[in-house]
Write a protein that binds this DNA or RNA. Structure first.
Lengths: 232, 232
DNA sequence: GCCAATCAGGTACGCTGTTCGCAACGAACC
DNA sequence: GGTTCGTTGCGAACAGCGTACCTGATTGGC
């Protein structure tokens, strides 16, 4: 009481903003932050600040930070959509490419998927689409499911590998040049030790394939293997 | 000065422990905590407490928590070792099984690998072993590297899928029964909505394959694809 | 025009990773 | 033997986090 200003008109008007942020806005803002500044920058306070609202208000719409991440993951999948042609191989490849594109667009995604079963609406919708893509293979749903799981596992794994260095670089806060300058000598040292002959051959003799080529190669292997094993 | 006890013998003897924890002990303790209680329980204070040392002391041996995680990942890979037979298919499969075993033994691992390039001593040693396993395939090191990457990507992806539900369950703190009781009705609802026909077929008609069977199926696909494409 | 229900958000708690600087020790030197 | 000096353990403190609580303003129904 005593430390309130004595004169009523001297009191600051409390900001009269009464805008509800809504779950969608929160999720979208959070995704933007994570995409542009990385996951560590994504705090509830930060989201609230970007939204111009109070931190505690977010908890009216989202149960926890963890919940928010679940919502972000599901939201990000809503962008995916596949038109099926009936050619299982082409359709499954198309799904694979879309998943890859999503994972690359949101670099934080691959690190957050482990530990979260994909049960959101969009996750299920995408899973349904993948199963539908592979369905023409055979009537054996168990085989279809196995094929889909194998393809998606491969996609997730490769993209994770693909992103690893990029992410580490970003996390270190170094520029690309500084990063290479710090890793290069170490690699050179490893090679010169002579203890890693195959690795050395890979680095020195190996051709530099683009990430797309590498992806395509492995995807082809998986699809070939599926085709060969499919009960007609 | 004034707030020191006046009597010298009233001063508490500072604990005279002078034991250096050493990096190895720190890493081992951290791995144990992460394995048994999950990554969220792994705090620097917790590690220090288990070690009976002061929190700040850890920073004499480990630069940061992030560094500690890098060390943990590399340490965990030191357990892996493969004897090569010269049969590329058997050897590559053996490497795959080992990686899977490691990932399953340390459930926190799959969530921490994304974003960290595997440049530790043991990571390199394992990568070298994988390349050596695949080397008999062909003299083309680029192809060998592609094959290894594809196999490891698949392994990482499947195990991540395999662990997802297990991890979520653990994270929620619920027992297995409680978890199933909370997920079951939701799945039932999804099926009854009729909007996910393939998914429903999978759940209802699909045979329950064990995790090993699923793993083996996909691994076979990848290896078949590699075999078919290998330049002789 | 009033009252009850609703809801934004300030404040605070307990936790985190990390730094600073001091205290205690071993060794090395006069 | 006494003194200095580098090393090492670590208490205390700081900034920032997720989140619960509760106050006070706003609004819809009567």
């Amino acid at each position: 009481m005593a430390d309130e200003p004595a004169l009523v008109w001297a009191k600051e008007r409390r900001s009269p903003r009464r805008q509800a942020p809504s779950v969608e806005q929160i999720v979208r803002t959070a995704i933007t932050i994570a995409d542009t500044e990385g996951l560590p920058a994504l705090s509830m306070r930060r989201v609230a600040a970007d939204l111009g609202s109070g931190t505690a208000s977010l908890y009216r719409y989202v149960a926890s930070r963890d919940d928010l991440l679940d919502l972000m993951i599901d939201e990000v999948k809503s962008a995916e959509d596949t038109e099926l042609t009936g050619d299982w191989r082409a359709d499954l490849a198309s799904v694979a490419h879309q998943v890859r594109a999503t994972l690359l667009r949101h670099p934080w995604l691959s690190g957050e998927i482990p530990g979260r079963p994909a049960l959101g609406t969009n996750s299920l919708r995408r899973h349904e689409a993948a199963l539908a893509a592979a369905a023409p293979l055979t009537g054996d749903i168990t085989f279809v499911a196995g094929a889909v799981d194998a393809v998606l596992a491969y996609v997730f794994g490769t993209v994770t590998q693909e992103l690893a260095e990029l992410q580490a670089q970003r996390r270190s806060g170094l520029t690309k040049e500084q990063w290479q300058a710090s890793v290069g000598p170490y690699i050179r040292e490893v090679i010169e030790s002579g203890e890693y002959p195959q690795f050395s051959r890979r680095v020195i003799e190996g051709e530099d394939r683009s990430a797309e080529e590498v992806f395509e190669f492995g995807l082809g292997c998986v699809l070939d293997g599926i085709a060969a094993r499919a009960p007609h």
